[in-house]
Each structure stands twice: as C-alpha cells, then as structure tokens.
Write a protein that binds this DNA or RNA. Sequence first.
DNA 1: AACTCGGGGCG
DNA 2: CGCCCAGAGTT
Length: 378
Amino acid sequence: MDRSTQKHYFSTELLSWYRRHKRDLPWRRSRNPYYIWVSEIMLQQTRVDTVIPYFNRFIDKFPTVQALAEAPEDEVLKAWEGLGYYSRARNLQSAVREVNERYGGVVPDTKDDVASLKGVGPYTTGAILSIAYNKPEPAVDGNVMRVLSRYFLIEDDIMKPKTRVRMEALAQELIPEGAAGDFNQALMELGALVCTPKSPHCLTCPVLAHCDGRAAGMEETLPVKSKAKPPRPESRAAVLIEGAGRQAGKVLIRQRPQNGLLARMWELPHTALPPGARTGEAGLPTAHAALNAHLAGDGIGLEALAWVMEAEHTFSHIHWNMDVYAARLDASPVFGEAGPLLPSHYRWIGREDMAEHAFPNVFIRILNAYFSGECASS
DNA sequence: AACTCGGGGCG
DNA sequence: CGCCCAGAGTT
C-alpha cells in the first residue's frame, strides 16, 4: 500500500476512534490553558490514574495562574508530595510567576514563548499549543513513539534524541487539518488504552488494518529501546532522634538543600555507609559512628542507637537500602532555653506536624510506622 | 551524549 | 522482581 494512503488512513481512523472513546479526564473538561499546562507537567513520567487526584487537589488549591504565582513554595511542594520529580513543582511555579508578570497571567500561545518556560520541553510545548490552542504542533512522548514505531515499523532506538526529532516530523505530518488537539490526544490515548507496552490489544485497534508492525509480527518487540543503566546501590543509616522534656513524643527532621536530589523536601537525618556495611543489629556500631560523624557539623551527637527497621527506596539512578535506628541526643549541643540549639533547617515534629511538611515516600512510611507504634523502639 | 531527577503499576 | 513509563534540566 502507498505510504501516503497509509498515513491518511491512520489520521482519520484514529481521530474518529478518539472522539468515540476518549476518557473523561478532569483536564479535558475545559480548554483552560493553565489546567492543560498543570496536567501536562504532572503527567510527565506519571500515569493518568496517579495524576487525577493530585490534579484535582492542586487546581482546587491553586485555581489560577495568579493563585499559584502568589502561593508559598512550601504549599506547592506539599501539594506535590508523593508525585516525585519535585523539580517539576519548582519549575512550574517559577514559570507560572513569569507568565503572571510578563504575560499578565495569560499562558502564551506561540512556540518560542511557551518553549522558553521553565520545565516546558519539546513534548509539553507541543501539548500546550495543540491541546489548549489547537495549533498544529507535534507532542511526542514515549507513548507516541511506541505507537508510531509499530504502525510504521520504525526500528530506530527511541532512547536516542535523533529518533524523537524524526518522530516529531512524522507526527506533525499526520495532524488532520484543524484537529491538532484531538489528534495528539488520540495518539496518546491509543498508546495508553490499546497500543500498550506489553501485550497490545491489536484486535480492538482502530488502525490495525494498515499497521506494518503488527503485519510483521513485531508489535511485541517494537519500539527498539536501548537499556537504561541499573540504579547504583547505596547503603544508608537513618535515625529517629527522639525528643525529651518538652520535645517528648517528637522526632527530629531536617530540610534538604535547595538543589539536587529531593530538593527542599523534609527527611530524617541519614548518611551513607561504607559499601557492603553490615545491616540491622550487626551494623549498629558502624551506623553509630557514621551518623555521629555526619551530624557533628550540625552540633548534634547521639547516645546509643537501637535498631528499628529497614526501608528501601528506588530512584531511577540510585537504590537506597536504609537501616533505621532510634537514638536520643547526647549533651554535646549548646543548650538554649528551648532545648538544644539546632541549625534552622532542623525541626522537632509530632505525627500531626507531618501535614505541614513535604516528605519523600520512604520517610512517610518510616514515620507512619514509628508514630503508630508498629516498630520497636526505646 | 550522558547523567540527574520519584514513584507506582503490572505481568 | 524486572520493566514500563503522558520528560526536562544540567553538564
């Protein structure tokens, strides 16, 4: 079959299918560019079902560009808690503030202006322009590359940037006149519901008839994707520092630095252990030494440790294997009237104070276990 | 081009 | 438990 006929068939059938089968999603109930923008940032590397409750809460809390621009950063980060890739939240608010000042709160509608916004790359630029403004720009994510690589039997490695550029050219050609928003969403909807990564549902696919990948029996092996490096393992020791006196029942947490891993999130104090260090009770002396060395710079020393639990956490590039201990402060800190004088990024909290601090999931798990008494401690 | 940045769902 | 992600920024 002629390639241009194959393309035209794909565009018209897919668009028609989408208009009959599209899901009712919160950000599809209007064409509010701010809603589209927020949803697209949340959807980066994140599933629809995960995003929905976050999106609803976020829009409820920050209903407009102006509201988000004027919100305290802490509240934005707390609203993002558990979603991951927290720089998305910081970049979003930074870009929203720019839109509020430079464009009077109106999300811009030109490629250069949208693409220059922090946290908005090639995919999100195309998504905003097409979905919010119906401009004929491609929005190519991993989902779209999977669909196109199968239908057109493209064997380029989708991990290579060059492949995304080729896919963008193809995706733009395919956009039907005046239907950019619906077509781009149709492409992603097909990838999410039918042309799935594993065991695609070809028998219900609206474009099965001219799918080259399926015809070649390659629907399971496409797209070609080079393997990512496995995450490097890290042994770490974390400590629940238990308050005494007026801090009784509370534990000590601290806020992470402005940049880097889990930027500005709150956490239990923890530090890396030598590779291959012993774990659990057996690792207690090593952990005690490592934690005291790590905390000495902040004027904190620990009395004897008690082992509490293990906790694991996997990032894309690091795997934390964490031993959690409990301890009390020794007498080394300088005592002020309110107790030990601690650096300003430390804070004593009880269970009820967790609501005011944004934690990575691994620390939420530990703190919940601790405060609910599910784990033994001193 | 390689590395940095979370977390959950699924077969 | 390995693999999959509705990517973008930095170096």
